[in-house]
Write a protein that binds this DNA or RNA. Structure first.
Lengths: 119, 119
DNA sequence: CTTGATTCTGACATCAGTGTCAGGTTCTAG
DNA sequence: CTAGAACCTGACACTGATGTCAGAATCAAG
């Protein structure tokens, strides 16, 4: 599929999809004329990328991580190097802290919302 | 206490504390010479502010939210307006989605980490 | 071939919080 | 009084993903 369709199906802008390619997160074949042609598996990958971005990982980390992931493409997933595993473990801890933060903030919002409903 | 101590105790830079003041998130008395003098309750407030920032709320939302929060200062917490409640409810939903995203990303990391440990 | 939709590249802008530096003032301990 | 630490304001830079625009090329359908 081409970039417009991928954007539509993932909800990610064409701009971002091109950016992902430049960051080596997302590969695309090219038509003779130079237009990007994406495999069907790109849809899942883009969604994964978005999730990881939302989790606060930067492009570089995601780029390292992706080849170690088992996604739909069935490709042989590389094993993560010890260095990468250490990084990812740190990221995991950061995500845990982030979740704890979010839960607290959600409680804060709930308090205010409930107080308003009550008052 | 003064800004340096508050920064030390909260782990937030002086720069950010001054920024919070400009955003009307954090008030401070002033010494005759113009130095900021913070109440003890500022510590908790700064931590709350950080959590809310981490949860993706912008300064404006936090500024609206703070007077409706019951924090240590025992001040009379304003009731949130219906408009604000609607906003906060939307933010709450966003936070829920964010948490779900984070859980998925954490699972992704776990898969890679485990695969490396296994392989 | 023509036309309109889609895509291409590249450059510049934005956001929002934070870092950092400069030059000056205030505070506090000796 | 004085020296050094702490603080003040204001300005500029940065980050990193994304928006947006311009001008040109490609694609698909009539």
């Amino acid at each position: 599929m081409r970039i417009g369709e991928l954007a539509r199906r993932t909800g990610v802008s064409e701009r971002s999809l091109r950016y992902y390619e430049k960051q080596s997160l997302l590969a695309a074949e090219r038509t003779p004329g130079g237009h990007r042609e994406y495999a069907e598996t790109a849809v899942d990958r883009v969604i994964r990328i978005q999730e990881l971005y939302a989790a606060g990982l930067c492009s570089a980390k995601i780029a390292q991580l992706l080849p170690c992931m088992r996604d739909g493409d069935g490709g042989p997933s590389t094993a993560a190097s010890p260095r990468l595993v250490a990084d990812l473990t740190a990221e995991r801890a950061r995500i845990d802290r982030m979740i704890a933060d979010l839960l607290r903030s959600r409680d804060t919002l709930d308090e205010v919302i409930e107080a308003a409903a009550r008052g």
